[in-house]
């Protein structure tokens, strides 16, 4: 197996698009090395992106935040403005694995690994995050939900590299939250999860909302009906019930070693309800 750590993006794209055999990008490696070890993949070439220019930076831009694809999740929590604007995205990213994993794993890797249970993805989708893609065809921007096409499958072409994840600026009185269910307190993969992002209008009525669910379908599910259930409300009980019901209806999970269809469906609703309440409280406390 060949290992390359290019220092220019052009070189990285050339390596990946010119590769014969199986070539993989390496960010934190917390998925890639596990899959190599389990003999699920046997790469001929691994291209480490961590030495590319700017890849390890979190930048504040006019549009919002740009998080380099090599930034380990541990660094997200240390970036105070990001944490203030998008606490739900940061907490989702920081649920991934242990402190050891946090030191390596990236949200770009979490996204591109395309696991239905990826923790940061529902929060990113709820947050209308975009992926910046550089590749043989140039540079483009794509909503994160457009990247994932199925379990382990993405819409990225040969030589495409996600160079950053972008999060927009926050209107006032906005909040987001992410919750997942795991059997232990740490170190598990989500059995089901929910990300909620919302903005309040006058008198703290929900003006705008996005609700996304994880691990309940082949890909992350955006549930507009659940969002509509809480828009125009102050999260009264019946609104929350409608939100939970809409979430349950949007689930099409499987039975597996981590959970049953019934459990995932029911608990996804519970989590969405709880996450909405947290997001709402966060929005209310903001000016």
């Amino acid at each position: 197996m060949r290992y390359e750590a290019p220092t220019s993006t052009r070189e990285a794209i050339a390596l990946m698009s010119g590769a014969k055999g199986d070539a993989y990008l390496l960010a934190g490696g917390t998925d890639l090395l596990v899959r190599m070890r389990g003999e699920f993949i046997d790469p001929d070439l691994v291209v480490d992106i961590k030495r590319l220019p700017g890849i390890q930076e979190i930048r504040k831009t006019a549009r919002g935040f740009s998080i380099g694809a090599g930034v380990p999740c541990a660094a997200l929590g240390r970036h105070k403005p990001l944490l203030r604007a998008w606490p739900g995205v940061v907490e989702a990213a920081q649920l991934i694995g242990s402190d050891q994993i946090q030191g390596r794993c990236t949200i770009a890797g979490n996204l591109c690994n395309a696991s239905p249970a990826a923790d940061s993805v529902p929060a990113l989708v709820a947050a209308t995050a975009k992926a910046v893609i550089v590749g043989p065809g140039g540079r483009r921007r794509l909503a994160v939900e457009k990247i994932i096409t199925g379990p382990g499958a993405t819409s990225l072409g040969k030589g495409d590299i996600v160079s950053a994840i972008e999060l927009p600026n926050r209107p006032p009185k906005s909040g987001d939250a992410y919750l997942r269910f795991i059997p232990r307190t740490e170190m598990d993969i989500a059995v089901c999860s929910a990300g909620v992002s919302l903005t309040l209008g006058p008198r703290n009525v929900v003006k705008q909302a996005r609700v996304a669910l994880g691990a309940v379908a082949p890909t992350v599910v955006l549930v507009p009906k659940a969002a509509r259930a809480i828009v125009g409300t102050r999260l009264e009980d019946d609104a929350l019930q409608r939100l939970a019901a809409a979430c349950e209806a949007a689930c099409s999970p499987i039975d597996d070693k981590r959970g049953t269809v019934e459990f995932r469906t029911e608990v996804a609703g519970v989590l969405a309800r709880r996450a909405a309440v947290i997001a709402y409280e966060r929005a209310r406390k903001k000016r």
């Binding site: 232990r184 307190t185 740490e186 170190m187 598990d188 993969i189 597996d256 070693k257 981590r258």
Partner: peptide, 16 residues
Amino acid sequence: LQNPGFLDYRIPVCSD
């Protein structure tokens, strides 16, 4: 066997 690893064979961790 579906879960031959510590990720899905869930022994208690410190915070449990």
